[in-house]
């Protein structure tokens, strides 16, 4: 027995990348994240310095994606906008995954009155579209990056609570849980070591797909002027400012729209590949 060598192709990510759609989507997502992180080093322009003589420039060699109504470089704005969109949507989904899993696991495992209370509240928010829940919450918290994060986080809380709860309820009647209990395992051990790891795969996939939806939701809030406030660019905000000049300078609205669409599409494709990569039974068949 030597040192165990983990081959990249044996990891979940490796299995995602084995599929063409995983590769394509993954490449785009890595690119977007890279651009968002290193935006200041990749562009000679500032995202917030106005250059009025150069306003409404169509795409050319100096400004690859043109400029907006204040002469700011659109590519730069899109790159900085990726920062806002990605961070708001991933942090928001992070919040709702974490809280949703805690709530769902507790109510699914212990049941009883706590479960009924949680289910009632969650089902109530579930009955509204996410956008409505998010709008109400932004109205309460106030517009801005934090407001958008919390609003989107709460809007998707119901999804993850329900998903985790149903997973936990199905898994807790499995024999291995009974076996573990019969050997003296505590509730904490059962939850943390057996139930949550077994429930994780569908939650990861749902989180991936919800991140795509959250980007759209963030763009929507931004479009309504409820997300990141100017001059901080967000994809939704860019589109919103583009509507006024839709016929004069269509690239201002089209380019952020394309960015949102392609990114969300990539996330969905990646999630699709993830479903197969995380399927334990499929893994057995492949090996």
């Amino acid at each position: 027995m030597g040192v165990a060598v983990v081959k990249l192709s044996d990891t979940t990510l490796g299995r995602v990348m084995r599929r063409p759609k995983g590769v394509i989507a993954g490449t785009w997502l890595i690119l977007v994240v890279f651009v968002a992180v290193f935006a200041p080093y990749l562009t000679p322009y500032e995202y917030d310095i106005q250059d009025l003589p150069n306003a409404f420039r169509a795409p050319d060699a100096a400004h690859w994606l043109g400029t907006d109504e204040f002469g700011r470089d659109m590519l730069t704005r899109i790159m900085y906008g990726a920062r806002t969109s990605l961070s708001v949507s991933t942090i928001a989904i992070g919040i709702s995954v974490f809280c949703g899993m805690c709530l769902g696991a507790a109510s699914g495992y212990f049941g009883g009155r706590f479960d009924r209370a949680v289910t009632a509240v969650i089902d109530l928010t579930w009955s509204f579209p996410e956008i409505l829940v998010a709008l109400i919450l932004v109205a309460i918290i106030g517009p801005g990056v934090t407001g958008a994060m919390v609003a989107i986080g709460v809007a998707y809380l119901a999804l993850f609570t329900r998903l985790t709860r149903s997973q936990i309820m199905a898994i807790k009647s499995e024999t291995f849980v009974e076996a573990s209990l019969s050997l003296g395992a505590s509730h904490g051990h059962i939850l943390m070591r057996h139930l949550l790891p077994n429930a994780l795969a569908p939650v990861i996939v749902a989180a991936m797909l919800a991140t795509g939806d959250a980007i759209i939701l963030e763009a929507t809030l931004g479009f309504f002027g409820l997300g990141a406030q100017p001059p901080t660019p967000s994809w939704g905000g860019l589109m919103s400012s583009g509507t006024a000049h839709m016929f004069k300078a269509p690239w201002i609205i089209i380019i952020p729209g394309v960015a949102v669409a392609v990114t969300v599409f990539a996330i969905n494709l990646f999630g699709d590949a993830l479903i197969h990569a995380l399927d334990v039974r499929a893994r057995v068949r492949e090996s």
Partner: peptide, 24 residues
């Protein structure tokens, strides 16, 4: 009872196929 289970009384379940956690 919990302290007793596993320590002094152990239980072997019917079906070994499902008695082990598949992801651990």
């Amino acid at each position: 009872l919990r302290a007793l289970r596993g320590r002094r009384i152990a239980f072997i379940t019917q079906n070994p196929m499902t008695a082990l956690d598949p992801v651990q």
